[in-house]
Design a binder for these strands. Sequence first.
DNA 1: TGTCCACAGGAAATACGGGGGT
DNA 2: ACCCCCGTATTTCCTGTGGACA
Length: 409
Amino acid sequence: METQTVRERMLKQIEHMARHSVIRDRRYLDDEQLVRSEQLAVLEEIFNTKVREAEVSELSSHFAGMLRGDHPCHLAIWGKTGTGKTMTLCFFLNLIADMAKGRGVELRHEHLDISTPRPCFRALNDLACLLGAAKRYKHGISLEELMVRIETHLADFKGYLVLFVDEVDNVRDREPFLTFLVRRLPQRLQAKLVLIFVSNRLDWCDQLNPRIRSFLKMNELVFEPYDAADLQHILRIRIGKALRPGMVGDGVVGKIAALASRDHGDARQAVALLARSAYVAEKAGSMITLNLVDEAARQIEQNRYVALMRSAPRQLQAAMAAVIDGARGGRLLSTAQAYEAYQRLCAQVRLNVLTYRAFSDLLAELDLYSLIDSRIMSRGRYGRCRQIRLSLPQNLVDQIARAIRMSFT
DNA sequence: TGTCCACAGGAAATACGGGGGT
DNA sequence: ACCCCCGTATTTCCTGTGGACA
């Protein structure tokens, strides 16, 4: 009896969802889930709408010489996250490699992605792996040895070698790394080496040896953030691929584009907001409306806080938990009171207790992220003290508390 | 007007840990 | 396997401060 009704309800639910579903292919809302060729297809469609036209034509004129046998110089590219640097370059290099093949020009291109900070040794080792010149080492091999292996591995190659170093600014101690690539490697190869450095910081080469810097400064290309119109194009293409037709209300695309271009013009953010909106709409069983976009934006915002705390250092988590515990019911808390709560908590979860001074810095950090709201009040004769309260909505505070508890167990 | 509370927050010293070199 | 170095976290020490109170 019981199972029957459950079964029925589920069937009804599925039927309802099928009739009202918003999403046709959710993979197109998240690049990670697309295979390479699909990504490139999306990009091609985007570039066909004149988005990034200036940059692509700049790249074309810079590299077109390769098809005629010239040796183009290196290129330094700047742009904030989500401005499509990596995507544009990948697309472009694929395109030019294709054309080169058609004309019998030997061209090899590699993408060295330094997505997380790593020392020179790691970066070189990664490069060697990428080229197939060496295996992955933890240690036990000198920098020199790595360099020689890369050189000997490439010794016989005579065509163009385009090396696309993504997020170079993540290489700590990048001087030797860059010196190797810029000054030493070209001299020891028969191949025509073309380096492309991408960074999201304008100042990444400021502290470098002037000789290398001047070398890099020769050719720069800046990726401006997308404007709202670009973002609209990008969103429309995604919508066409990912959603069923007619599921997007009036003004929704404009709104998402406006929100995303207002902070940083990050395309990834815009697509993420679209994805979340679609998800929320699907759950609500309606098309995407302006209100649902607001709801989605709120959820993304809240998730950021939760994710931030989940991945925060334990001490910071403990400080947050202490404040949540102490400031129940909108109570105002002084640093000293918060510190007491923190000490109790540390005892419970066997965390070593930091000094008052260090704890005070933790609170300042929480305040910086606006996880708490703290201001300094003078009580005259009775001294000055910080008044701490939770400023986030209660349900979010509960989520954060839960996330912290999870990572403590 | 000066005092003094109760803390904030800067500076320097020190501890710690992880990665690279040998 | 071991040591050293360096960047970061933490501690220690200290000076600064707004305003109620006498």
